[in-house]
Amino acid sequence: MITYDPHKWLDHFFDIRGSLVKEISGRVLICVFWSAGVVYFDKNYHDVNISSLLHTLVGLALSMLLVFRTNASYDRYWEGRKLWGGIVNETRNLVRQATVHLSGERDLVVHLAQLNVDFAAACMYHLRGAKIAGMLESQHPPLTIATQMTFALQEARRRGAITDIILASMDQNVQLLIDYLGGCERIRKTPLPFAYVVHLRRALVVYCFSLPFALVDTYGWATVLDTLVISYVFFGIEEIGVEIEGPFGLDENDLPLEDICTTIRHNLFALVELEHSEPDKMPEGL
């Protein structure tokens, strides 16, 4: 993810990285060259002008389709971020409870903290379709790690460190971790309907490539510039939808999963260390 200050226009107004210019430049340039050919043919050989009314009406419908496309994609992006926020919270809650209820079993507390860190990393690699070193035989690494968390809680119950009620309460956090991962998998494995995406792209191509015929009589050679602007806007909006509909990848506009996993690791091990801090060494204000 690219961090930026939304109040400073000039700091990012001309940025290429993350702006999708590279992704759409080929389509836009083809439209521009095509429009130049249409204008040249119109002026030197035969009048090819058509009424602009059709493009006006189609442009309105196409704009609505693009709005729906970007809204649907952003909903997926934001839902993914909320689910990962849930993962962060549940790992904190689980280790927080462990530091209190298992205060006499430091080895289990550290083990649970490490499992939660491993779970977050496993979720990240799982959602990206990557293999995880040391777990090549596991069909579902995050689920395997979650199961190990439950085994650790059962071990704490066997030692008499927690009661059945506390075990059930802490295991509920593990269940929520699995639920949040399931939500992420739903986003990853369910793209936008194929028919909608194909129809929108066909409409975009037809609209942008037929646009010079509607503009050439009125704007002449300025049609080339008009086509450049309109195709850049329309193809750019569509590409933004493509970019953010799968928020768990490695693109520059995807969620910063590495940073989130790092935050989880720092938070959990700081909590484990805080548990064993002496009272007179606690930070002021606590």
Score class of each variant (00 low, 15 high):
residue 36 A to V: 12
residue 275 E to F: 00
residue 227 T to P: 00
residue 74 Y to A: 13
residue 234 F to V: 08
residue 149 M to G: 07
residue 33 F to Q: 09
residue 241 G to F: 03
residue 73 S to I: 01
residue 123 C to F: 14
residue 133 A to S: 15
residue 208 C to T: 14
residue 236 G to M: 03
residue 259 D to I: 08
residue 160 G to M: 08
residue 77 Y to R: 15
residue 111 H to V: 05
residue 90 E to T: 06
residue 124 M to Y: 01
residue 18 G to T: 02
residue 176 L to I: 12
residue 201 R to E: 09
residue 101 H to K: 09
residue 109 V to K: 00
residue 113 A to I: 08
residue 263 T to K: 07
residue 142 P to D: 10
residue 40 Y to S: 15
residue 77 Y to D: 03
residue 37 G to I: 07
residue 159 R to T: 02
residue 206 V to Y: 06
residue 28 V to M: 13
residue 128 R to C: 04
residue 189 K to Y: 07
residue 98 A to E: 00
residue 49 N to W: 15
residue 81 R to V: 10
residue 273 E to V: 00
residue 17 R to E: 09
residue 75 D to W: 13
residue 263 T to M: 01
residue 109 V to I: 09
residue 192 L to C: 09
residue 261 C to Q: 05
residue 126 H to N: 02
residue 255 L to R: 07
residue 213 F to C: 03
residue 267 N to Q: 04
residue 95 V to W: 01
residue 39 V to W: 04
residue 146 A to I: 13
residue 257 L to M: 08
residue 157 R to Q: 14
residue 237 I to E: 09
residue 98 A to C: 03
residue 142 P to C: 11
residue 271 L to G: 09
residue 83 L to Y: 02
residue 251 D to M: 05
residue 134 G to N: 04
residue 282 M to C: 02
residue 148 Q to H: 11
residue 151 F to A: 07
residue 188 R to G: 14
residue 130 A to Y: 14
residue 160 G to Q: 15
residue 29 L to H: 08
residue 100 V to F: 05
residue 164 D to R: 04
residue 39 V to P: 01
residue 210 S to T: 02
residue 282 M to T: 00
residue 72 A to I: 15
residue 259 D to W: 11
residue 45 Y to P: 04
residue 133 A to Y: 10
residue 160 G to K: 12
residue 74 Y to R: 07
residue 100 V to E: 02
residue 144 T to H: 03
residue 242 V to Q: 04
residue 27 R to M: 10
residue 169 S to G: 11
residue 264 I to N: 12
residue 275 E to N: 05
residue 285 G to D: 00
residue 5 D to M: 11
residue 83 L to K: 04
residue 257 L to Y: 12
residue 63 S to L: 08
residue 66 L to F: 06
residue 99 T to W: 00
residue 183 G to E: 02
residue 25 S to P: 02
residue 222 A to W: 11
residue 110 V to C: 14
residue 203 A to S: 07
residue 4 Y to L: 03
residue 51 S to D: 10
residue 264 I to F: 07
